[in-house]
Design a protein around this nucleic acid. Structure first.
Length: 270
DNA sequence: AAAAGCCCCTGGATGC
DNA sequence: TGCATCCAGGGGCTTT
């Protein structure tokens, strides 16, 4: 489910309310992708300093150590004054003096991992290989072009890989390539500087706009307030196979790259 | 080093 | 109605 916009929207929806809270207890449901990495009881008494985001990870800073949280494919967070009884897909609860942070994740591709710091080997393994933040100052056209020149894979898959630029998932990769007028199958190394620059701008534009719209709610995404997102309503290509292109009228195509669906317009993307 | 496949898991939609 | 099949916002790990 969640790409950078959904994760960022989630972060903003509870960061302010949980900051300063004291952890009372933690509860685990079924196993997630990785073990928590500490006894849940050991979290009691720690204070939440704030919530950051790195790529699609949320970093919940504690006064000692931090929690790395990933929503995987089907995860969503809620933050409520009091938690209803846990349902079958509620796999992590953090009870605090200011409310309960709950992770609901039917498919359990998500994770909550405790690490002592960002230099912790586990944190390094998960965060160390990530590319630059697309909405940060390090995402810059010339460096982006240089990084793409080293990659022979199709540009769609390079965007998804996350080691050049983070946070672009399956929806926004298709959308950004449409905006930039680039075929998803184009080898990354063959993009000229002007085209890479267009793609750079398109990635920033589509992600920023999606954050603005509260993310995309295709099935069940909602932020920690329970509010849905609306970006899916303005998707140009994603999940629109067989429908007319909103720009040129040609039929939107669906193809498969690396076992993931890609949507594009033959008329608008060269 | 980089690319390509393979999984992890559950639920909803579709088709017979 | 029931059952099989396909598909889904991710990404680490293993193999080429």
């Amino acid at each position: 489910m969640p790409e950078l916009p959904e994760v960022e929207v989630t972060r903003r929806s509870f960061a302010g309310r949980i900051a300063g809270a004291r952890v009372l207890a933690a509860r685990l449901g079924k196993p997630l992708r990785w073990p928590l990495g500490c006894d849940p009881q050991a979290l009691a008494g720690r204070q939440v300093q704030g919530v950051r985001r790195r790529g699609k990870y949320l970093l919940i800073d504690l006064d000692a150590g931090l929690l790395l949280l990933h929503l995987g494919m089907s995860g969503s967070l809620s933050f409520m004054p009091e938690a209803p009884e846990a349902g079958p897909h509620d796999h992590f609860d953090l009870f605090t003096t200011q409310g309960v942070l709950r992770l609901n994740d039917p498919r359990r591709f998500g994770a909550v991992v405790y690490v002592t710091g960002e230099d912790d080997p586990v944190a390094q393994k998960l965060l160390g290989g990530l590319g630059v933040e697309p909405l940060g100052p390090d995402f810059e056209p010339v460096a982006f072009h240089a990084a793409l020149r080293r990659r022979q894979a199709p540009i769609k898959q390079v965007l998804l890989a996350g080691d050049v630029v983070v946070g672009v998932g399956n929806i926004y990769a298709s959308e950004a390539l449409f905006l930039a007028g680039i075929r998803p199958t184009t080898r990354a190394s063959r993009l000229s500087l002007p085209r890479a620059t267009r793609l750079h701008a398109a990635v920033q534009e589509v992600l920023a706009r999606a954050v603005d719209k509260g993310g995309s709610t295709l099935r069940d995404f909602s932020n920690a307030w329970g509010e849905a997102g609306y970006f899916q309503l303005e998707a140009m290509v994603y999940d629109r196979a067989g429908q007319p292109c909103r720009r040129c009228g040609q039929t939107i195509r669906r193809m498969v790259q690396g076992q993931r669906a890609t949507y594009f317009c033959r008329g608008c993307q060269v």
